[in-house]
Simulated scan of single mutants.
Amino acid sequence: MKDENLLFRPAVRVDLEGIVGMLADDNLGRTRENPELPLERSYEEAFQAIHEDPNNELIVAEADGQLAGVLQLTFLPSITYRGSWRAMIEGVRTASSMRGRGIGRELILHSIRLAEEKGCRLIQLTTDKSRPDAIRFYESLGFSPTHEGMKMRLDKGDGKE
């Protein structure tokens, strides 16, 4: 179901506190993010790096004038697939107060359209194995678990992922 009052746009600096708040507002996010104000400088630095990189987009969804969702879309050139581009989706969240309205679905579909416009051959994402609802959601959009994702933590500090 498409929300008629839904708008997608690049994130701007004033969105950052709300974005971090959405990222922290779930079981895994609570262990990884710190939404306390003032925000840690690392959030500001990451926002600036994304903003300045032409192959990265931090996209927000607004519904009824409120921040409703976020994701990061990264475009990656690749030698594989005959030198084609691919897109990677990260950090997908819908504001908890706005879940169930189809906002996340529309945000992902918007990202797929952007990847197609860029000429990407494929779009990929990862989701934590402990999120069965998210896995079902992505599968309902046409994503399939064709690969086994692997990660390695480089900062062994706090044990948070």
Rank of each mutant, 00 (worst) to 15 (best):
G21I: 08
R86Q: 08
S111H: 01
N56I: 01
L23D: 04
V14N: 12
A68H: 13
I89T: 03
M152D: 00
E33K: 04
R41V: 14
L125D: 06
R86F: 12
S84C: 09
D15G: 04
H147A: 10
R105W: 06
L109R: 15
P54D: 08
A61W: 00
M150C: 07
R101L: 14
T74R: 12
N56M: 10
A24M: 07
K2H: 14
R13Y: 12
P38Y: 11
F47V: 06
K156I: 13
W85G: 02
S84N: 12
R101P: 02
I19P: 10
P38L: 06
R32G: 04
S144Q: 09
T146R: 09
A134R: 08
D53C: 13
M98Y: 09
R101G: 00
N5Y: 04
T80Q: 06
R121S: 13
E45I: 12
Y138N: 07
H51Q: 15
E36G: 06
A87T: 05
D25L: 03
P38W: 08
K118I: 00
I123Q: 00
Y43P: 05
D133G: 13
F75R: 04
G104A: 00
N27Q: 13
I89K: 03
T31Q: 14
Q48S: 11
W85N: 03
L125P: 03
G18E: 05
E90L: 01
R41L: 14
L71G: 02
R9K: 15
P35H: 08
R9E: 09
N55K: 08
A46E: 11
I59W: 04
I103E: 01
E90K: 09
C120W: 01
S144L: 04
S144C: 03
G65M: 01
R86H: 12
S97H: 11
G159A: 08
Y138H: 11
S78P: 06
E117W: 02
A87S: 09
A61C: 08
M22Q: 04
D53N: 15
K160E: 06
R86K: 13
G142S: 07
E161S: 11
L125H: 04
L71Y: 01
E90S: 14
P10N: 15
H110L: 01
D15M: 01
D26Q: 08
D3Q: 15
G100M: 12
R136Q: 13
L71N: 12
L71H: 10
A61Q: 02
P132V: 11
R136C: 03
E40H: 08
S130R: 15
P77Y: 11
K160R: 13
A115R: 05
S84V: 01
M150N: 06
L141W: 04
G104R: 00
G104W: 00
S144P: 00
E106L: 03
R99G: 03
A49V: 14
E90H: 07
F8P: 05
W85Q: 07
I112A: 07
R131Q: 10
L154K: 11
L71T: 04
